[in-house]
Design a binder for these strands. Structure first.
Length: 574
RNA sequence: CGGUGAUUGGCGCAGCUUGGUAGCGCACUUGGUUUGGGUCCAAGGGGUCGCAGGUUCAAAUCCUGCAUCACCGACCA
């Protein structure tokens, strides 16, 4: 490609609405332009990268035995009503009507459509297992789109769905997808980790996420410092502290704590550590037969945070988790949220494992402006349950039993689930088994955020001059930069000849044939991040040489013109 | 969804407080100059100041409403 015939679209100034580095660089490098909130047009350079990522994903999926299909993005409401998600997915689902006033959704994911397709096409166990995938645009009406294509409303995703007769067969495909994903992220040249995950709104049981490690990541991941344990913080179990709870030594005592509501304020005022204060949070219980909702008190240590996912999975707690309103809290405790505690409460109390290990601790007194000190379990709070309801913190012992946890940030670029029968049951997708009996299929699903990978790759590969693409996904592999081509016939001839030779060898070359000064060309090629640059200058031509420069290492070497093609081929191969 | 802020040539911004015929840098066009790291000079083109209404002799500027966009928040009592 010649720059004179290409749409380069680089800009010097960063548009003001970009927050993170990948968004800024994608705008500056002329990869994307914003159309509306969370919606982007891809310019030629952006498309080239996108297609490369897609192609790697496609190859690895095919290699793992998945088969490509293409499903509609616009989907009839009936399917979503059938699965139940017309109601449960709620705000993220973009709905609209056609000219006949029929309801439709813009596909945020395709479990419904694929299950519908498979229930019509597959009738016998002999056709299983089956793993179908597509690479396609999704639309999710995100609560808060941000970070450019990282969390866009419209985005490109590879989604695969597998169908099985047995758990063993599902596990086999799940394992195959797990290693296919590892292959994909290895080939992309990314620093990533598979981690245990919660299956969230999609449903199902076993699940792993694949995270690209980056400071700007929206997820926190817990790693063991001495094993390969890794889990999303949502998921990581907080173990009970070792040993017995210390004995009570102090009497219950009410103290005035005017103006102190938060844990930190109370800790400062009473000169105690936040680890010796218990926080009380109220959430809604599941409605009883009469449809009435009570509150449940959750107790965590002052320095810990409630883990909503863990809490909402407990029996009796409304899911999704809903916090009590200020009015409800006042009605129950006769105090504001900053002064509430478990002593004397009549509602169900669920305490975190670490919280029940405290003795002589501090809680709100259920009286505005007062706290209780010297509080002890059983003596002062006779009835309570124990559960793991907090987020782990750095330094906690690893649930695997080896070492302690460290926390890193990650960008979720892949997620695999064992769905079970959630969708196949709802849509009655079954086959005849070996005994000739109807049997519901069990399913897995496997997603890769294709457009998010592009942003994640930039987060991990850039410097002050711009993007540094891994070879596998660079929009072009080689930049050809001639010095004063428009003045020197010799330069023009050599560059033209190199361009022809490299292109003929199947190498993707961006030949900068603009009438620009060298600085402009260097800056543009570095900004868009081409991994290999060849500079053709008058002074080296006398020795039949050109200069090679590596974008990542900055390494510069002279190459004989005759060997340029083979040298570049060697660099691309390794 | 709640809070905060923004909206002025393609992009980044000033002008608004104190109303009086819209400006700067980048980009673009033309001519010249320069040519191994975003040259320099000159001359140009391009804006109903987000939309609608109001106040006024007069509105980018003041008032009201709406729209769009961004950031923060949506357990941490």
């Amino acid at each position: 490609m010649r720059t004179s015939q290409y749409l380069l679209s680089t800009v010097k100034e960063t548009p003001s609405d970009a927050e993170i580095i990948s968004h800024k660089l994608m705008l500056r490098a002329g990869m994307i332009r914003r159309l509306g909130t969370g919606m982007f047009s891809y310019l030629p350079t952006g498309v080239r990268v996108l297609r490369k990522v897609e192609e790697i994903v496609r190859q690895e999926m095919n290699k793992a035995g998945a088969i490509e299909v293409l499903l509609p993005m616009v989907q009839p409401a009936e399917l979503w009503q059938e699965s139940g998600r017309w109601h449960t997915m709620d705000a993220e689902l973009l709905r609209f009507k056609d000219r006949h006033q029929r309801d439709y959704v813009l596909g945020p994911t395709h479990e419904e459509v694929i299950t519908d397709l498979v229930r019509r096409e597959i009738t016998s166990y002999k056709q299983l297992p089956l793993n179908l995938y597509q690479i396609q645009t999704k639309f999710r009406d995100e609560r808060r789109p941000r970070f450019g294509v990282m969390r866009a409303r419209e985005f490109i995703m590879k989604d695969a769905y597998s169908f099985h007769l047995s758990q063993a067969s599902l596990q086999q495909t799940y394992d195959a997808m797990y290693s296919a994903y590892c292959n994909i992220f290895n080939r992309l040249g990314l620093d990533y980790r598979p981690v245990q995950a919660d299956s969230g709104a999609i449903g199902g049981s076993v699940s792993h996420e694949f995270h690209v490690l980056a400071e700007s990541g929206e997820d926190a991941i817990a790693f063991s410092d001495s094993s390969d344990y890794a889990a999303n913080i949502e998921m990581a179990e907080a173990l009970a502290p070792k040993g017995d709870r210390p004995a009570a030594t102090k009497a219950l005592c009410e103290v005035a704590t005017p103006g102190a509501g938060t844990v930190n304020e109370v800790a400062t005022l009473l000169q105690v550590s936040s680890t010796n204060i218990a926080k009380t949070l109220f959430v809604q219980a599941e409605a009883d037969e009469q449809g009435k909702q009570q509150l449940i008190a959750l107790i965590v240590r002052g320095d810990h945070e409630l883990n909503e996912l863990k809490a909402e999975k407990l029996n009796g707690i409304a899911s999704p988790l809903q916090f009590a309103t200020d009015e409800q809290i006042r009605a129950l405790c006769d105090a504001g949220a900053g002064s509430v505690g478990p002593v004397g409460l009549t509602v169900r109390i669920i305490a975190d494992r670490s919280a029940v290990h405290m003795a002589d601790f501090v809680v709100g007194a259920n009286k505005d402006g007062y706290h209780l000190t010297g509080v002890n379990w059983e003596r002062d709070i006779p009835k309570f349950e124990v559960a793991d309801i907090r987020n782990i913190i750095a330094g906690d012992p690893s649930p695997c039993g080896f070492g302690n946890l460290i926390i890193k940030r990650g960008i979720e670029v892949g997620h695999i689930f064992q769905l079970g029968e959630k969708y196949s049951k709802a849509l009655k997708a079954g086959v005849l088994n070996e005994e000739g009996k109807h049997q519901i299929m069990t399913m897995g699903c496997y997603g890769v955020g294709v457009s998010r990978i592009v942003a994640a790759a930039i987060e991990q590969n850039h410097d002050e001059n711009g993007i540094i693409w891994p070879d596998a996904i660079a929009p072009f592999q080689v930049a050809l930069i001639p010095m004063n081509m428009h003045k020197s016939v010799r330069i023009a001839e050599v560059t033209e000849q190199l361009y022809q030779q490299l292109t003929a060898a199947g190498i993707e070359v961006l030949f900068d044939d603009r009438r620009e000064r060298p600085g402009v060309m260097f800056a543009d090629m570095e900004l868009i991040g081409l991994p290999h640059t060849i500079v053709i200058g008058e002074r080296n031509l006398d020795n039949q040489q050109v200069e090679y420069k590596n974008r990542r290492t900055g390494e510069k070497v002279m190459l004989d013109i005759a060997t340029v093609v083979t040298e570049i081929q060697q660099k691309l191969a390794c």
